[in-house]
Design a protein around this nucleic acid. Structure first.
Lengths: 203, 203
DNA sequence: GAATAAGATTAACATTGTTAAGTAAATGAT
DNA sequence: ATCATTTACTTAACAATGTTAATCTTATTC
C-alpha cells in the first residue's frame, strides 16, 4: 500500500524540479525576464503544469526566495555560534549579510526590495520563524551580547537593530542596483559602513 | 512666421500633458500597474501618440523621475544654504532626503531601487549634472563643511558620503517596502539612524 | 488649388500570466 | 475483471501588455 507514498514522492520530485529550474532562470536572468513558458520548456512540461504545484508566478518566486534565505540563516548561525569578541562577531555577521545579498542579488531584490504584493498575508510574512525575521533576530541577539559584555552602551536594542538593518540593507541594495556608480571600492564601502554603524552605536 | 514656434509650443504642451498624466498614474498606482493605454485614455489620445513624444514606457518613467528629483535637489539646496551649525545642517539634509523618498515612494523606487535597464547610458546616468548626482554632491559638501569647521575628524569624504547615502537609502527603502514591519516608530528609526551614522563618522 | 509634411489613429503582432475544458492513464470499488 | 473515479497533465484559448507598420487626416507651403 505504498502507492500513495510513491505518488507523493513523485509529486514532490516534480515540484522540486520546477523550483530548481525556476531558481536557475530567476537567478540568471531576473524574475521579470523569465516567463512561465520558459520554465516549462526547461523541465519539458506544459506551462500549465506549474499551476498545479504553485498558485502563480509570484508564489513560485516566494518559494525560491524561501530556500535561499534558509541558507542565509544557516550562514549567520555558524558565525554567531563562534566564540570570541562579540563586537567583532557582530561585524562579521553584518558583512556576511551584505556578501550574501551581493552573491544572490535576484533573490535579495525580490525579498527585500520589491513591493509586497497586495492582498499579502503580512501576519505570516513577519512571523518570528520566517527566514527574514530569523535573519533579523541575529542582529538583536548580536547587539545584546555586545551590551552584556560591556562593549556597548545600554540602548533600545530593537531600535538599534533596525538601524543596523537599514545600514547593511542600504549598502547591499545600492551595490546591487547601482553597479556602475563610481564607488570607492566595494570592499571599502562595505567595511567602512559596518565600522561607522557599529562605532555610532558604541557611542 | 511664428508658425513653427506655435507648433513647437503645442508639441511641448502635449508632451507635458502626457508627462503629467503619467506622473499622476505612476504615483498613485505604481509603474508596473499602469499601462500605456491607461495613460492614453486619461489624456484622450490614442496609445501610439505617446510614442511620438517618448521612446518607450521606460523613457516616460525616466522623465517623470527627472522632474521629481529636480524638486529634491531644490529642497536640499534650500537647507544647505541656511546658516548655522554644519553638523545640524547635514542632519537636516539627511532627514529631508529620507522624508522626500517617503513622500514620493514610487519615484524613489523607480530611480533608486529598480534595476537599471540593460543598454542604458551609464555615462549619462552618473554625470555630475544628473539629479541623482546633484543630490549626492550635497553629502560630500555637507561633510566637507563639517570637517572644515572642526566638528568632524579628517576622513575620506567620498567614502564617507557613500556610507551616508547607504544609510539614508537603507531606511528610506526599507520603510517604503516593508510598511508592515513592526518598526519602533518611523520617526524614531529615521532620527536614530541619522544620529548613529553621524556619530559614527564624527568618531 | 496641389503637393508636402506633421500629427495622430487604426490595426495588428508577439508575448505575457492565467483559466477552462479536455484527455489519458493510474487507481479504487464492485 | 470491469467500470467508475480520481489524478496528472495538455491543448486551446482569453484578456492584457508594450510596441510597430501602415494609414488616414489635417495643416502648412508653394
Amino acid at each position: 500500500m505504498g502507492v500513495k507514498e510513491r505518488r507523493a514522492r513523485q509529486k514532490k520530485y516534480l515540484r522540486q524540479e520546477i523550483l530548481d529550474a525556476a531558481t536557475e532562470l530567476f537567478v540568471r536572468e531576473g524574475y521579470e525576464n523569465v516567463s512561465m513558458r520558459r520554465i516549462a520548456d526547461k523541465i519539458e512540461y506544459s506551462p500549465t503544469t506549474i499551476y498545479i504545484y504553485f498558485k502563480d508566478k509570484a508564489d513560485l518566486l516566494e518559494q525560491v526566495c524561501k530556500e535561499t534565505f534558509a541558507r542565509l540563516v544557516q550562514k549567520l548561525s555558524k558565525i554567531m555560534e563562534q566564540p570570541g569578541e562579540p563586537v567583532e562577531r557582530l561585524k562579521r555577521g553584518l558583512i556576511a549579510y551584505i556578501e550574501f545579498g551581493l552573491e544572490n542579488p535576484h533573490q535579495y531584490r525580490t525579498t527585500f526590495m520589491m513591493p509586497i504584493p497586495e492582498g499579502f498575508d503580512h501576519e505570516k510574512y513577519h512571523q518570528a520563524d520566517s527566514p527574514g525575521m530569523q535573519a533579523f533576530s541575529f542582529l538583536t541577539r548580536g547587539l545584546t551580547e555586545c551590551i552584556k559584555a560591556g562593549k556597548m552602551r545600554a540602548m533600545n536594542v530593537e531600535l538599534a537593530a533596525q538601524t543596523l538593518w537599514a545600514g547593511i540593507h542600504g549598502v547591499t541594495s545600492l551595490l546591487i542596483t547601482h553597479t556602475t556608480f563610481p564607488w570607492a571600492g566595494r570592499e571599502k564601502v562595505i567595511h567602512f559602513t559596518v565600522d561607522t554603524l557599529v562605532a555610532g552605536l558604541a557611542g
